[in-house]
Design a protein around this nucleic acid. Sequence first.
DNA 1: GTGAAAGCGCTAACAT
DNA 2: ATGTTAGCGCTTTCAC
Lengths: 345, 345
Amino acid sequence: MSILDGDHDVTAVRHAAPTLEMVAARAGVSRATVSRVVNGSDKVNPSSIEAVRQAIAELGYVPNRAARSLASAQSHAIALVVPEDITRFFGDVFFASIVAGLNDRLDQSDYVLNLMVASQDPGGKTERYLLGGAVDGAVVVSHHTSDHFLERIGDAIPLVFGGRPGLENIDTWVVDVDNEEGGAVAARRLVERGCTKIATITGPTDMQSALERTRGWKRVVEAAGLEPGPQVDGDFSMVGGALAMRELLDQYPDVDGVFVASDLMASGAMPVILESGRRIPEDVAVVGYDDSPAALACPVPLTTVLQPSEAMGRAMADILLDVLAGGERQRSTIMPIELVERESA
Amino acid sequence: MSILDGDHDVTAVRHAAPTLEMVAARAGVSRATVSRVVNGSDKVNPSSIEAVRQAIAELGYVPNRAARSLASAQSHAIALVVPEDITRFFGDVFFASIVAGLNDRLDQSDYVLNLMVASQDPGGKTERYLLGGAVDGAVVVSHHTSDHFLERIGDAIPLVFGGRPGLENIDTWVVDVDNEEGGAVAARRLVERGCTKIATITGPTDMQSALERTRGWKRVVEAAGLEPGPQVDGDFSMVGGALAMRELLDQYPDVDGVFVASDLMASGAMPVILESGRRIPEDVAVVGYDDSPAALACPVPLTTVLQPSEAMGRAMADILLDVLAGGERQRSTIMPIELVERESA
DNA sequence: GTGAAAGCGCTAACAT
DNA sequence: ATGTTAGCGCTTTCAC
């Protein structure tokens, strides 16, 4: 009692956290017993459990994480590494739902998530953090190809990559979406509705995912006995999509179907099509990619390819947790995509 | 050398991290000296510094965070607490740039950011984490009014709130944007362009920020000698904005100016105005709020109120870091808003 | 300027 | 089932 009645010092003095030792003293048991109760060991006498529980409640005891972590060599934390500009990252619904999925899975464990934005990272702070035992494992999400510093880290803690190839020769897992199949599904839709002049607006050519989507698109178009139309780089941005569309209409005026590799680009491209006097989908059918909010904000509701981003996040967390618990997991997990049918194609 | 040449066990065995003791042995100095070098103490002989540095490099030594944290009673981490649904959080550009600002400031310190999404938080994991000494302080961002569990936390570590009122009676700081002034600026724009029938589409009435914007709007409209038009709740969503606009046009058909308390709502409301045969801004002028990407995706480029969200994030981090360093800071910081002039008003 | 020694609060063997 | 004893890897007096 005497320790707690400190109402008078609320604002100025921070309460010193009670320790396990204080709990032990109050409950009249050894520190080891308290530790056992806290960690849910089964070999404890019910009466002791009760006494400890009460002492914990009365004192408001919370285990010190650093001490626990030091003694057990586990942090019960995992890092979310984002080697990307943070505004871009958060602006992207794809990433947002991955994080939501991650978080959802983690909520059911006693692990916490640490956000590491490594875009600039002066002084290798991120690397030191990951190597310093602060986290038991890490999840890496980015569209870009792997950054170098991660190689050393995969050597020290398990790494799960999302949406892109992992590193070679070290302990890493990959959860990816089947981008090529995504491009293929989009193209198939166009082919099946009777388009014969099928072009595509692609993402940046230095992104693996963009390349794969294009490859899938091309495969299907060719398999249908058609001559693939132009591939114009739209840079994954809205204005990029508009510019690409303009260029496309110029050099390939009789285009009747286009696979736009992101909804954002599609939302930029559509007005250009409309302004040229063509109708969507009657004259030019459009299939997007992402099923982002942008798909609904388009002039014509966009038929698009849905990536299971939240499920990806959940899968990544699940794999990492499993591995940390000593389980075995497949190195590579490919998540299925699906077509969301709306009006543009 | 002999310790490092372990190329053969890359995949299976994780390297045991070198300890300070190993560095000391290699450098031929005491552990205390290594610690001094690592922490940049000035009272170390240059030659020792050199020896230690080299040993660190050769061994690839990285200090163990848990041990350091336990011994120094500091974690060098701060938490970003989000008592909100994560998808909503990341979907909101306002929050995204706050995080960008936070991160930007933190990059220049040796603190790291820990993401705590407390929306559901079974078992009070977040609370235990924050209370367990895992972080030295926390930043809380959310539009919603304070959650209860934060009170105990503010008692243990310094808390900085963003964009909403903090808690009473405990050590908290608040960085907020002047929402009332934001609403006032928007209304002023409408008044100055000659509107006389000015309505508003508001955010949810249980959000402080929404209330304040409406208050500012009302104050200015009345000060101009005008009768304030209807206030319709648009729920901060796109469809909510559309529905609200429809209702507004019904009950107040001669409206000639409307302050829509978020760009997202405005992007939903505008098409409704246009479809009713009214022109923007000639018949109905529209001012939004946020200066989000949605402002540019509107049928008519949206004049809107800009919140300095990134600066807010930076300010929050700055305050927290200062306080952690023992500095004194004002409890409340109000950031200025500004009007972004485009075509809709 | 440098080293020795004593913890930080917890977990994990090892006894009992 | 419970207590005792060592540490985990680091910082931090306190001597020298």
